[in-house]
Write a protein that binds this DNA or RNA. Structure first.
Length: 480
RNA sequence: CUGGGUGAGGCGCAGUUUGGUAGCGUGCUUGAAUGGGGUUCAAGAGGUCGCAAGUUCGAAUCUUGUCACCCAGACCA
């Protein structure tokens, strides 16, 4: 009977192993994270989805502030002439820029781009604001949305408009800029791993894969449950590329006019897609406690009986007072069983059941979303017990994801090995550095170079694509 | 952009081959019972079949066009 129930229930979501894409779509729609918008390629982020974004924002923003950054806001419209100033940059973004051509009924003299990213706007302002080395560094960030006219879209992973943060900084020296680039990558790594429980590999992008206009691009790459890679965040060192194009100069300590060294870095709502595709299971979402908008849901059981609602509410209030993000679900329109499934679908890490029998015995039944383990705990000291459970869930989910990634990552020595490994996982191999090898891998295996990890301990000496002498360790994978 | 698929009450679908004026499940509303894993029964509300043109006495069904979404590629956070 229980088995039968189980079957009935999972048919709401397409099985993950059967069709990962459909499973993803089912989960995001049924959990109420997003809805498709009336405008092509755009999504509506619903309250539960936005609550997750707000959690991510807070965690990142605190870390940005702690590393000395300040928030600003730049206009959404960028004059075409700005975009044209940096050659690689224009070329990279031209195909996906949306344009404003009219103001009211009048055509504009110069068309305006809806920002696909704000490097050029920041540059234009920095060139006004910087005079002296004493003005440096300038460490600014903005939270905003950007628009890229994508051909194919997918909620959270790729949409025409998406929410993100973009940090833009300028520095006196190339060393300082490089330090900043790596510092922010570390902020991203820490947030991804400690808050979102997403194991990531940090490293440098190849020439082919770097950001248009950057001297060097670094990324954090995470592995989804279908073995594909998702670039979860990038940081760029521009050197003086943009400074030269926008004439951003300062008078140095030696009294010489010099170009500033610039960086930029960003993560987006794509992070939410990464959480879903890394942690989700047959029952829907699983949210790591540190990012979950609701960490524990308290359910009164047999709530029509006298004293149950009051008793359960007291439990919920005590947990809230201890700093746990709690939802007290006293809906009387649905059954307890419905609520169990509802909150499991939504990925709430802990469920606390409080019924008449529990209240009498001074206890509660607690169920973990990650392991489905059910335990009975005394109400006395419940908050402390749950706090440590939440910590354990966070750790367990991260370890699970790490183990999955380890299992699906293979060291490869030659092309056959590479071919096998990128079919459902990451390949770690040596690379000679020739873009021709990347082209071949892309054309034949539809995989790309992801990044060169900071740990460059060689795993061989021959390029796993062409067999020539190689000295770079590179991750290859199919990517979103 | 290329290939494949789908558009029908809020959601999921049968009906299209063989044109005859729209049906099922779920959800929603109301009432009663139930209440520790997606409750049960009863009574209701809700669509003219993505859009446009055409063929026909008559089109969800046939023809042409068009739009949107989904999947797989190519391109990108």
């Amino acid at each position: 009977m229980a088995k039968q129930k189980e079957q009935e229930f999972v048919q709401h979501i397409t099985p993950r192993d059967q069709d990962f894409s459909q499973w993803y779509t089912d989960v995001i729609l049924q959990t109420g994270l997003v809805d498709y918008a009336p405008v092509r390629g755009c999504m509506v982020i619903k309250p539960y989805g936005y609550a997750i974004w707000e959690r991510i924002q807070k965690e990142l923003d605190d870390r940005f502030k702690a590393t000395g950054h300040e928030n600003v806001y730049m206009p959404m419209l960028i004059p075409e002439s700005f975009l044209l100033k940096e050659a690689e940059h224009v070329e990279g973004f031209a195909p996906e820029v949306a344009w404003v051509t009219h103001g009211g009924l009048e055509p504009l003299q110069e068309r305006l781009a809806i920002r696909p990213t704000s490097e050029t706007m920041f540059c234009a302002m920095y060139s006004k604001w910087v005079q002296s080395w004493r003005d440096l560094p300038m460490l600014y960030n903005q939270w905003c949305s950007v628009m890229r006219w994508e051909k194919t879209t997918r909620p959270f992973l790729r949409t025409a408009e998406f929410l993100w943060q973009e940090g833009h900084t300028i520095h006196e020296t190339v060393e300082e800029a490089q330090e900043e680039t790596l510092r922010m990558l570390e902020v991203y790594r820490e947030t991804a791993e400690d808050v979102l429980a997403l194991p990531v590999t940090c490293g440098q992008k190849s020439e082919r894969e770097k950001f248009p206009g950057a001297r060097a691009t670094y990324s954090i790459e995470s592995m989804m449950q279908d073995g594909k890679a998702l670039q979860a965040g990038t940081t760029h060192n521009f050197g003086t590329n943009f400074a030269e194009a926008f004439d951003i100069k300062f008078l140095s300590r030696e009294g010489k006019l010099e170009y500033v060294h610039e960086t930029s870095w960003g993560v987006s709502t794509r992070m939410i897609g990464a959480i879903i595709m890394t942690h989700g299971d047959e029952r829907g979402l699983r949210l790591p406690p540190n990012v979950a908008p609701i960490q524990a849901v308290v359910l009164p059981i047999a709530q029509h009986k006298p004293g149950v609602i009051e008793g359960a509410k007291a439990v919920a209030d005590a947990l809230k007072a201890a700093g746990i993000r709690v939802k007290f679900d006293d809906r009387d329109t649905v059954s307890a069983g419905f609520k169990f499934n509802d909150w499991e679908l939504k990925g709430v890490p802990l469920r606390v059941e409080v019924g008449p029998r529990d209240l009498e015995a001074g206890q509660a039944v607690v169920a973990r979303r990650d392991t489905f383990e059910k335990i009975t705990l005394p109400l006395e000291g419940l908050a402390e017990a749950l706090l440590s459970l939440l910590e354990d869930i966070q750790k367990t989910m991260f370890e699970q994801a790490k183990a999955f990634r380890a299992e699906k990552t293979h060291v490869v020595l030659d092309y056959d090995g590479l071919k096998a490994a990128v079919n459902g996982g990451f390949a770690k191999g040596m690379w000679c550095g020739d873009p021709a090898c990347e082209e071949r891998v892309k054309a034949e295996l539809s995989a790309t170079t992801r990044n060169m990890p900071f740990d460059q301990t060689p795993v061989g000496d021959a390029c796993c694509v062409c067999g020539k002498k190689a000295d770079k360790v590179m991750y290859f994978a199919k990517a979103y």
